[in-house]
Every structure is written in structure tokens, then in C-alpha cells.
């Protein structure tokens, strides 16, 4: 199959209509164009979101709305999103970050490191379709994707306080590497005891997953090494790691508690 058309619509309405007619949607192109270059065309018609006006960042009231086609360089340069800067720095290279988008990171298979962050933060996805728009929890988008013809327009996320936000990507190289595992978490404590913990794990299952067992193991207990290691052992019930060129499934299981401890306690 060859590409028969690349549509570059100027509006969301036009893009939604083209997607509904079966056009394959792309934003930065970093996931779709490698396929095109290798003749593995995802569909005869591509729909680029580049001119749809979906890029942009609004921050206010402790919440951020990040447009779907916002690039990672734009996220990194946004003063209001500085809490995400260390996480964004772990995603690919600066040149890819000039192209790759927040929406693309969420909707590629597997979803990427920023999707893992959004999962830990219970983000909401704004989705547009022929019948109007709807809000969808990010967990649902990660698990089941969008309905045919729908487009992601933005993610809305409550920004974590720096002290409650934890991110750690375990890699073979210091920069521009796929993940052995990615841990993103928000943990709040009161009187030295954990009140809420939301932990998302990337690289340990076909898609980023919540570590519900680890969250339960932390609840009401002090955030100290023994407790966190115990939570990390519990998290093995939440993951289904695989062998890949970065690490074996066995290794990932083995080191999960250690990296959860390092993520939360340094």
C-alpha cells in the first residue's frame, strides 16, 4: 500500500471529519512516518493535525490544560509546567522532542513516559468526535484507546506539588533510551503517614499500569525504606513484564522494589 493523500486540515472539525472517513491521524510524525518510510503504511490517507490549532498550554488554579499537539520541547519550555521538566528530559532526544507531541505519546502503542506521568496524576482527556466532545479518564484512553473517528484534543491535569511528585526512569544509557521501567507517582503524607498514593508504572506491562497493590501497601504507613520495598514487592502483582532489548522480564521483576524505593526516597 502507498500513501494516497496527506490531509493537512486547518480546523478540528475538518480533521474529525477526515478521521471519521478512515484517515489515519498523525501529529508530530515520529510514530507514523517511520512506518511510511518502510512502506508499512497505516492507511492510504493520513491526516496531519499540524495546522489544527490544538497545540498550546494553559496553566491556572493548579491545573494545566495541554493541547494534544503540544510538543515536548514546548512542555519543557513552559514555566508553568516546570514540575514535568525532569520527566520530559528523559523522553528521547531534543530533536525528537521538537516534533513528538503529548497526544502522540499517549496514543502510540505502547504509550510512553509522559502517559505514565498522566496516569499517576489521573489526568482527564478531552476527546472530540463527530457527535461532539467528551471527557475521558486517561486510564481508559491508555487501556482502550479512542473510538473510531475520535481525536484527542487536550489533556487536563492537576499539577502536583513538587514535594509530592516522584518520577524515575530506569535506562541503560543516561540519555535517549527506552525504559527498563518508568515510575511516576504522587504521594501525600500527613503526620508522617501516607494518606494517598498514586503510582503508575511504565515498561512493565504492555501499557502503563497503576500499581494498585503498592498503593494499598503504602496507605496509612510511614514512607520509609522497609515499607516502600514491601510496596514494591506487592507491585509485582500489578505488572506483567516482558523480555525486550533493554532488560529481561526476570530482571524487571527483580529490581522493581529497589527502583520504587529509589523513586520515592532517593
Amino acid at each position: 500500500m502507498v500513501v494516497e493523500a496527506v490531509h493537512v486540515p486547518d480546523s478540528l472539525a475538518e480533521a474529525t471529519a477526515q478521521a471519521a472517513r478512515g484517515g489515519h491521524v498523525m501529529a508530530g510524525g515520529t510514530a507514523v512516518m517511520p512506518l511510511v518510510n518502510y512502506g508499512i503504511v497505516p492507511g492510504p490517507e493520513l491526516v496531519s493535525l499540524r495546522r489544527t490549532g490544538l497545540a498550546g498550554i494553559e496553566v491556572g488554579d493548579g491545573t494545566a490544560r495541554i493541547g494534544a499537539t503540544t510538543t515536548f520541547s514546548e512542555v519543557a519550555d513552559s514555566p508553568g509546567l516546570s514540575v514535568f521538566r525532569p520527566a520530559v528530559a528523559t523522553i528521547a532526544s531534543p530533536v525528537i522532542r521538537n516534533m513528538a507531541t503529548v497526544g502522540g505519546n499517549l496514543l502510540t502503542d505502547p504509550p510512553g513516559d509522559f502517559a505514565t506521568c498522566l496516569l499517576a496524576l489521573d489526568a482527564t482527556c478531552e476527546v472530540a468526535g463527530a457527535g461532539g466532545s467528551r471527557d475521558v479518564p486517561v486510564a481508559e484512553v491508555i487501556d482502550s484507546g479512542l473510538r473510531p473517528g475520535e481525536l484527542l484534543t487536550a489533556v487536563v491535569v492537576r499539577l502536583p506539588a513538587g514535594a509530592n511528585w516522584f518520577y524515575r526512569k530506569v535506562t541503560r544509557r543516561r540519555m535517549n533510551s527506552g525504559a527498563i521501567m518508568t515510575i511516576a507517582a504522587t504521594v501525600e503524607t500527613a503526620g508522617g503517614l501516607v494518606t494517598t498514593a498514586r503510582i503508575a508504572l511504565g515498561g512493565l506491562a504492555p501499557r502503563p499500569v497503576r500499581a494498585a497493590s503498592a498503593e494499598r501497601a503504602l496507605a496509612g504507613r510511614p514512607l520509609v525504606p522497609d515499607v516502600v520495598m514491601e510496596a514494591g514487592e506487592a507491585a509485582r502483582a500489578d505488572v506483567t513484564p516482558a523480555d525486550d532489548p533493554f532488560a529481561s522480564a526476570w530482571y524487571r521483576n527483580r529490581v522493581l522494589p529497589v527502583h520504587l524505593r529509589r523513586a520515592l526516597l532517593g
Binding site: M26, G29, M33, S48, R51, V95
Partner: peptide, 28 residues
């Protein structure tokens, strides 16, 4: 041809990008 090597890096509107991953229609 998949964004992994950087040999095709050029500047588009002042930003370094991988020219192999840009469909020309999208940057007309």
C-alpha cells in the same frame, strides 16, 4: 529512516527536526 540516528537533522522554522519524519505536505 525512523528517527533513531539523527543523520537527517535540519532546521525547520529555526528548530532542529528530523527531516525523514516530516511529510512535506505538513510543512508547506
Amino acid at each position: 529512516a525512523q528517527g533513531g540516528c539523527g543523520a537527517c537533522t535540519v532546521l525547520v522554522d529555526g528548530k532542529a527536526v528530523l527531516s525523514c519524519l516530516l511529510a512535506v505536505e505538513t510543512i508547506n
